[in-house]
Write a protein that binds this DNA or RNA. Sequence first.
DNA 1: ACTTTTGTAGAGTGATTAGTCAATCGAAGC
DNA 2: GCTTCGATTGACTAATCACTCTACAAAAGT
Lengths: 188, 188
Amino acid sequence: MVEKEKQILAAALQLFVAFGFHGTPTSKIAAQAGVSNGTLFHYFKTKEELIIALYNDTKADMSAYLSAQINGQDRLELRIRKSYIHSLYWALENREKFYYIQQVHFSPHVASIPPEVIAAQTEFHLGLLREGIQAEVLRPLPVELLFTLVSSHVHGLYQYLTASAFTADHRKTVIEESFVLLWDMIRK
Amino acid sequence: MVEKEKQILAAALQLFVAFGFHGTPTSKIAAQAGVSNGTLFHYFKTKEELIIALYNDTKADMSAYLSAQINGQDRLELRIRKSYIHSLYWALENREKFYYIQQVHFSPHVASIPPEVIAAQTEFHLGLLREGIQAEVLRPLPVELLFTLVSSHVHGLYQYLTASAFTADHRKTVIEESFVLLWDMIRK
DNA sequence: ACTTTTGTAGAGTGATTAGTCAATCGAAGC
DNA sequence: GCTTCGATTGACTAATCACTCTACAAAAGT
């Protein structure tokens, strides 16, 4: 049954986010997932392996969502716009997952993730930006700089939107207006 | 002796950043600080208290540095500019401390920090921005939005500058150019 | 049918660790 | 010199937790 594996991952996500890595014993994860202690270790050899598997699973989830939203036929600005806006939508709809990714990044467990795995995940976004520079749509800055400017914009907006309770409508407005600010900053 | 307390905080900073909260036992902190196990618990009743004390100490350090750099007589744009640039300089010169602040933010320990303590620390920056909006120097956006846009810009730049090894000169150029981008985004 | 593999359970274990405590030390005041 | 009291020590404890192991059940394969 792959079912149990998913249950374990779901339970781990909830508990890790709520209580941190140290604060959630494997026994509690197993209990919350409705499986025995031994079963957890049948699917994940160590707690560390579970932490990393959950990270990969979460990242894959986000990537899949983004890919589904963006149409390769659209013109570049629209693709960048969609990539920005839907990153935010995904984050807002999957707050635990979005938080978990950052939680892993600020923990010693990042060291266990092969750099090429992390690189692969940003490749899509870097590609978009590279295309923009080449087409002289975006400022001729280093791609990595553009990339961090855009990602931190996303993180900032996320923080702003989750700090207060806005209506879905107002959220949409803020997100779209914030893209205009971002776009004016990076466009040629 | 206040000396020992400082030694413990310094040791804790190094170890927490290198191995995470769970990964560093209090015994190792005491050893690295050159004091006994009991002494550590004489100064900090619990490990949690040590974590929080280190957080406050670090934040105070940053605030003191920033206050010293900014002259209340300067005109607003210069004060904002200095606040941006020196935040980055401090972060680059105190990477462990800067990292630690974020590490705490993505851990369950944030919950133990009274919200008003966190608020007090952002009050200075919010004040600058409020002044800018009132003087019609900055766009009439919600201050909190402006604030997160600026802070995430700082974080993004920090990440970019630490990911690769640049000369001090080149770093200075990038920081100054990035402020222009930011300023164009937020100014009226 | 029967053998093999795979999944599941949960009690058990060895190691680790936060925090305690009783004993000493040393400086300051008298 | 004596007393007091905070600082300091490090052995100790009680609890926790990651992980193992044995036993059993259920599929899958033949």
